[in-house]
Design a protein around this nucleic acid. Structure first.
Lengths: 345, 345
DNA sequence: ACCATGGCTTGGAACGATCCAGAGTTCCAC
DNA sequence: GTGGAACTCTGGATCGTTCCAAGCCATGGT
């Protein structure tokens, strides 16, 4: 719907506060108050201004508002690196849910790109130009570089991922307890009658990997099961998942496998395919992340599903507090994942 | 060129043009010129100003610049609806590549969310508040509602997807020739010695579906092969893909299947799994979109891969022209997909 | 009748950048 | 030596909003 302006012709320029003020017969400031502090106006004035606003289709100019209030209502999110594996499948779902949660409180998401080799690239420019109110940092397991730097620049941010290497970090964070995830995955297999349950995980220097692994170990030991010869550590790729599965199947002959990621689980599937073993019948497999792949591969891979929707909502809530109270120091929030059971187990 | 990041002294408020001007002993306007039109300055003045800029770590305030120039250097992209299937996997890859391509020309991407039930929701607010310079529209096959509306509001936009229902639309667009994709997929199977090649596609009212289907028909007929009894039309879901495959396998017994999407291909895999048929040996399957799933499922699904990187670059190029020349009317760009051959064929 | 009170409304200034028109320099041709 | 063009640089105005301090106007207590 095109909006006619005082001149009578149809103009491309959107109406301003002044246009509304003139039409309603009040001052600019009153219109501003009608938008931002309606309680300050007398009921009849408010109604009159509101009508003028509706009539013109007025919407405050973001740049002007942002300049004056020093708030852009934008949250910066650095595009996670694109990998040809499945590892970023979870991040995509997170971005979706985060954008949705942010929208509910009037925030939009500014996606930016940074050189994958430099975890700090991109942040500085946005910070200096006051383009965003805050950041969401996602790859905290890669080290505390980003958070440390942001802190030193006094930038506001929250992180999806606990501050692994800085136990004393004060920024709000939300994370998913994936040690617990490994635990329920392993216990699920034990309930199904398995006792030789192997683990395929990541290298020792991977914080995420060690955490997940500890859940498997805990579940095994609590149930009086041995883990010797059942653990393997490797890269997060399909080919190394396959290699690890091959080695385990040849040596220890486990009846079930818990994998630190759906990517590794897919590697296992490749090994099974080659050996003509049937997933879910000859051998059980559980993965992590509940990716698209896990959901769709026949007969479906049982997978540990992180509650991304809840994480996104928690992060947005923390952001709101943080932006309202600059000194806000929240306790971290740890969420529990659930197991989505499918045909593979 | 590169600004020292962890600069020694950190003040609360970022430096402004006036700060730089004072330090360099010139006027504000001169600093502005140093940033935007360096050719206008004498070499020694430029050097002096540049030094002051570096020293303070000055970066123009986006809100102020945006207010004055009426350009935000933001491109709006409505978050495609999240589906639990595989259909949006391609869109995620597109978003990635688009953000990257946009960054190269100094544009950032503003992600926003809109009620899935209303294809226009969200655009209006951003447009009225002049928050973005342009939009990228992605779901043109759902009808021309968005583009028609944006046009009527005189908004700038480009679309990823041809204007299906409006042959006379004048906005720049980029699309992938997926009829051609179906053709090369079918021909690939013919080369491999198949002659009974079935098609699993979407309902008749799906423009995308009919286009892809025509490629299959064309390839079959050009090679003197019959298509009777080999085509089936259904929903884009795993379960209906499975049902369609079951029906075809029972009735016509094709040796190869071309599917309109990787989702349908996954449905086929489910049917094969149940029948204990081996993908790539007992029967060949080709999908569309080259999703994560197609890439990782053993032994890999041969799939038609849309050149998303190229599409993103073309769109950004078109956007640049459009924003530089408001009257810019580009011819649409049609890109050719390639076939990624994997174990499934 | 008067002043204080509190609710509503207002005009001017400011946020930090760019646009614009004009002023000061430099340089060269005549 | 002078006029004029070309080159540099400058100060004021402006984009659309919100902050601020002050103004207006009923109301009510004294």
């Amino acid at each position: 719907m095109a909006v006619p302006r005082s001149g009578g012709h149809i103009s491309a320029a959107p109406p301003t506060l002044a246009d509304v003020a003139e039409l309603a017969g009040v001052s600019r400031q009153t219109v501003s108050n009608a938008v931002n502090n309606p309680d300050l106006l007398r009921a009849d004035t408010l109604a009159r201004v509101q009508e003028a606003i509706d009539q013109l289709g007025y919407q405050p100019n973001r740049a002007a508002r942002s300049l004056r209030t020093r708030a852009s209502h934008l949250i910066g999110l650095r595009m996670p690196a694109l990998q040809e594996g499945t590892a970023n499948a979870m991040m995509d779902r997170f971005v979706h849910t985060f954008v949705e949660a942010a929208a509910e409180t009037g925030y939009h998401v500014l996606l930016f790109y940074g050189d994958p080799a430099d975890p700090l690239d991109g942040y500085d420019e946005l910070l200096r130009s006051t383009a965003v109110d805050a950041f969401v940092v996602t790859d905290t397991h890669l080290g505390g570089q980003q958070t440390t730097w942001l802190q030193s620049r006094r930038a506001r941010f929250v992180s999806f991922g606990r501050p692994w290497t800085q136990p004393d970090a004060k920024h709000p964070w939300v994370d998913v307890d994936l040690a617990y995830g490994a635990e329920i995955a392993t216990e699920h297999l034990i309930e199904r009658g398995h006792s030789k349950i192997a683990w395929i995980g990541w290298h020792k220097d991977s914080l995420l990997g060690e955490e997940r692994r500890s859940g498997w170990i805990h579940a095994m030991h609590t149930n009086g099961l041995s883990t010797t010869g059942l653990a393997s550590r490797t890269e997060d790729s399909i080919s190394s998942g396959k290699a690890a599965a091959d080695a385990l199947l040849d040596e220890t002959e486990p009846t079930a496998l818990v994998c630190a990621s759906d990517t590794l689980a897919m590697g296992v599937l490749h090994a099974l395919f080659e050996r003509r073993l049937r997933l879910g019948e000859d051998i059980a497999v559980v993965g992590f992340d509940d990716s698209q792949v896990a959901q769709t591969v026949p007969p479906g891979i049982t997978s540990v599903r992180p509650p991304l929707e809840e994480a996104a909502r928690e992060l947005v809530k923390a952001l709101e507090e943080l932006l309202a109270t600059p000194s806000y120091a929240a306790p971290g929030v740890m969420l529990k994942p659930a197991l989505t059971v499918r045909g593979s187990s």
